[in-house]
Nucleic acid binder design. Structure first.
Lengths: 266, 266
DNA sequence: ATGCCTTTGTGAACGCGTGCACAAAGATGC
DNA sequence: GCATCTTTGTGCACGCGTTCACAAAGGCAT
């Protein structure tokens, strides 16, 4: 069993499109779609890069992995590029998706307009709460977890979204994988362990906030003067030596709720 | 103006904690908190790494940036490490947060338990819809956008969450920044442009799904045989030369909705 | 007290990603 | 048809992040 490693560690790289590039393609596609709607025929790498918020050289290199779709002295044909990127991302086909865990977040995701467009289609909403079964959310009737395997099998679903509480996530994940799911988007604050061949991407509000807090603190700490070693008082805990003797006394005070699930399932 | 560059490009690195490490600290913290609740006194880098889903050497190196908090032959003291990481992340202080855009997603975020714990506190919910004003969501009364500046100023808020439709995001962002916000978590599918000194982190469901679709397609395409150049029929669009003459005819068929907002504000 | 055994902390190598800078390609004007 | 000007595509160098592998450190048993 692979220890919940997410993306692709060092697996075979298909034809050679770097992971970092793949992650930016949706960004380009979005910018290009906007241009397309305004009937703009061509864009230069400079303009498009600005719209996507990246370096123009990086963008050109990214596109070079897809082939030479630009015209020197002119730029890129918007429509053509939209098609090429869509094709590369696999957006020209239909991707049925199941959402497991229809709480606040799950419901919000079900209502998310981004699903309908771009080839993603919500095939089913699944929840463990029998009371929710049959209730329509975003125009789709919620089904019970018991049906999970059948739903995935019948609809040929390969992408699953987990929006359950953290405690249920791994279990749901296991069932999804066993049922044939090979791509998972995880909103639960847990590290999922999956077998090789299954991709997991994580969306974690808590982590993002903590990263912001780190930088925020650093900004605040830098304002005063240049730098210093604010060791404002190591309230408790032995540095090293006297440890191991189980300094267990009382928990500091960090909330005992340890990362509450993203959403209530009921 | 900085072109919507997110994290820190090459800015001064405080005392030298790599960005990649910072991004993992919350992960370690979560695993450590779980251990703490089970009253586990110490962990080895190997165990903790497994729990966090990372390489043990990486974890040790990450911790080495914080200082030498481990004991050779024993491991790390759980409680002590929880405290150190919390402090490093700035979680020992209170971070008031405002959420702008109380639609499905905004409401789900407001209900998110992860806020309450870990030093984050929802200071206010803000929406442009007058009809929502005064209505309680997650126990907090929604306030109108007009109050935005005052709310931020009065509560000393420095972190803002944008959960509005894409169209309103940049405008909201500008107001937040003008009001003093220096960290933004953006759920709207748009590239935000912010001045230097303001951190933006992005959470984008659509992009994550597209990345999954890419890998999913690749898996499916690899199954058959080794590799090949599936150029299954370039339906339209001129390769290069005859372009620039505005081959504008009709849009392919990619949904004309071009990335619907994450959530309806009303 | 001494030696063994476990686990940390880190030096060094490697690979990926980024950005610069420029040559080549092509369009456009005369 | 030729010159000029724009913009692509990419070779190259640099820096960050990851991983291996091992010496040093410290606990623990005898």
């Amino acid at each position: 069993m692979a220890t919940g490693r997410n993306h692709r560690p060092a697996t075979s790289r298909s034809r050679g499109i770097p992971e970092a590039t793949v992650a930016r393609l949706p960004l380009y596609l979005r910018a290009l779609t906007a241009l397309s709607e305004r009937s703009v025929p061509t864009v230069s790498s400079e303009e498009l890069a600005a719209a996507a918020g990246v370096n123009s050289a990086k963008l050109r290199k990214d596109f070079s992995y897809l082939g030479s779709y630009g015209t020197r002295g002119v730029g890129y044909d918007v429509e053509y590029l939209v098609y090429q990127i869509s094709r590369e991302l696999g957006l020209t086909q239909d991707w049925p998706v199941v959402i497991v865990g229809i709480g606040n977040l799950g419901a919000a995701l079900a209502n998310y307009g981004g699903f309908a467009s771009r080839g993603f289609r919500v095939a089913a909403l699944i929840d463990a709460d029998p009371g929710l079964a049959g209730r329509p959310v975003a125009g789709i009737s919620v089904q019970h977890t018991d049906e999970l395997e059948k739903i995935i099998s019948d609809n040929g679903v390969s992408i699953g979204v987990i929006a359950t509480p953290a405690g249920a996530a791994q279990q749901v994940c296991d069932r999804l994988v066993a049922a044939g799911i090979t791509s998972i988007l995880n909103f639960a604050p847990t590290v999922l362990t999956v077998p090789d061949g299954v991709d997991v991407r994580k969306v974690d509000l808590s982590i993002e906030l903590q990263i912001l807090a780190f930088h925020e603190q650093r900004k605040a700490g830098e304002e005063p003067h240049g730098e210093h070693d604010e060791d404002t008082a190591p309230p408790a805990a032995p540095p090293a030596a006297a440890v191991a003797k189980r300094p267990r006394s009382k928990r500091p005070e960090s909330g005992p709720d340890g990362d509450v699930p993203a959403v209530m399932p009921a």
